[in-house]
Design a protein around this nucleic acid. Sequence first.
RNA 1: GGGGUGGUAGUUAAGUCGGUUAUAACGCCGGCCUGUCACGCCGGAGGCCGCGGGUUCGAGUCCCGUCCACCCCGCCA
Length: 598
Amino acid sequence: MAFYSLKDRTHDCSALRASDIDSEVILMGWVAARRNFGGAVFVDLRDRSGTTQIVFLSEKSEDLLSSAQTLRFEDVIAVRGRVISRGDNATEKIATGAIEVEVEELQVFSQSDPLPFPVRNDVNASLETRLKYRYLDLRRPEIQNNIITRSRFVSFVRNYLVQNGFLEIETPYMVKYTPGGARNFLVPSRINRGNFYALAESPQIYKQLLMVAGMEKYFQIAKCFRDEDPRQDRQLEFTQIDLEMSFADENDIMNLVEGMILHGFSSLGLEFMNNPFPKITWEDAMRLYGCDKPDTRFDMPHVVLDSFAAKSGIGILESAAEQGSLIKGICVKGEQERFSRKTIDQLTEFVKKEEIGGAKGLIWLKHGPDNTFTGSVSKLLTEEKSHELMKLLDSKDGDTIFIVADKPSVTHKVMDNLRRHLAAFLNLTDNKKYSALWVVRFPMFEQNSEGDWVSCHHPFTHPVPEHVSMLDSESKGDVRALAYDLVINGNEVGGGSVRIHNPETQATVFKALGISDDEAQRLFGFLLEAFRYGVPPHAGFAAGLDRLSMLITGADSIRDVIAFPKTVTGADLLTGAPTPVIEKQLNELGITVKPTDS
RNA sequence: GGGGUGGUAGUUAAGUCGGUUAUAACGCCGGCCUGUCACGCCGGAGGCCGCGGGUUCGAGUCCCGUCCACCCCGCCA
């Protein structure tokens, strides 16, 4: 008997409806469940699209029935049969619930060993087990649908960009090593022993060279590699929707990307709470939310209370203000009854945690009837000062106010964490809702822990033109960049900038970063040289496809939107990578591995 | 590099104050069953309690170390 093949398959397992009754069909898929009644066997047949119940009846053939009784979970089969009505036994649980297929012929393509864990949405094997048998985990409809949704989104993105005149161009993954930024994965060169490629952190330099090359509009679904500790939303290798456009300014890029996101989400039936996306400056984001990626699904902005604090009559606030502390308040609308003394104590412990920012304490006030406060410092506030604070924070009867005073960096971080924490506590974060915004005018530079000035974005970012003269001054910390981040639901899903195309400006920026002319030549000489041969002004963007995929699928972990993810220690539990390699290979590369404890 | 949570049958979990033969559900094996849909019923097999050391008459349980997974901080231009 010849095996059935794809051309014989008449329908997928989600296709059949009552209107198909009496047709003869051939289905192929995996045995998702088997219910054996001796004289009748029901099988849930699952393929990528869904599930159809097939039924083996003794009246048809005893041989067929006994074959059906040997079927086990995840056997791969084809069946030929007739679509019949399920009558009173119809179910709403599956899309094909009105019908079933009465089997006339069964082909078993392959049998499955007993499974290490059930292939079902409602059974949670440990992550370790799921990753070891990732091909089984991927059969679970929940994960499979994530991968399908991601594919549909990527497909939309490609179409959108191509229709907007973009060319999809690949750039090298094995690139020149440059220090700074993320730690690189290194690839040793056999032919040039002792030399290394780096795996690209991003296609940044190549896409700028493509602009010099006159490609005008480039995009790529590009893998990027960064040897930094993974997180819930971060993997060692990840994917960016990377694009660059000549003659474009920041609004051209933001409009393009915004259209891509709005329509891409819309194509999946997902709509944004805000359209168009608001733009706020980095400064305003820090002032209102204490961070550069605020979650705007809920309001609860921070209010800076420095001048109030200085004359508040509250000793700790007045002295904090004198010492140059930043004092911020946040007003929780209503739900006052949920802030019991115990809850407030827990919030106080929360803000004191080091990873939350390590505040010294948390001031709280409950706005009661007749415009009075109760709370930690209420007795110290005059009626006039109380009313002033109420006005500043727009608090009403039934609201609750929290105040933190500390070093600016601590206050921002603590109040950011507190705002998110309160939103989660009050169930204001619905992952079916989407709220996006642009954060613009990032600083050009920041100081790292060693006190060195480093780029916030990257060294090719164009400063705000009016700030160019400040680049080599003491106030370079105040220089703002033509850089923008796209933030959705508190996730930084992408960022970009206008690039420098003027050699003098580029030289000044390198100088501000403490990169000498010689070093600039050594690291980026090829780029600077390219820019001498006619470079168009250009700007670009890179969006994190994995994080976007998490948002569109509602996945909690980046692992749930990547077919073969790595663990938090960078291991691939399915293949066992990374592994030692054979001595011969190391010898060819001229590499000696040191013992681990050296 | 630092902090936290977890690891017991193929899987998911329970296991009290340190005490006799380590439980359950699902899966697996055998049997029964023609309307189930996570079918049901009867019976059975299945254990390096992550690994190594220590305390103790006695350790799944207490202590030390270590490995693995996850979460967080640092890090991620």
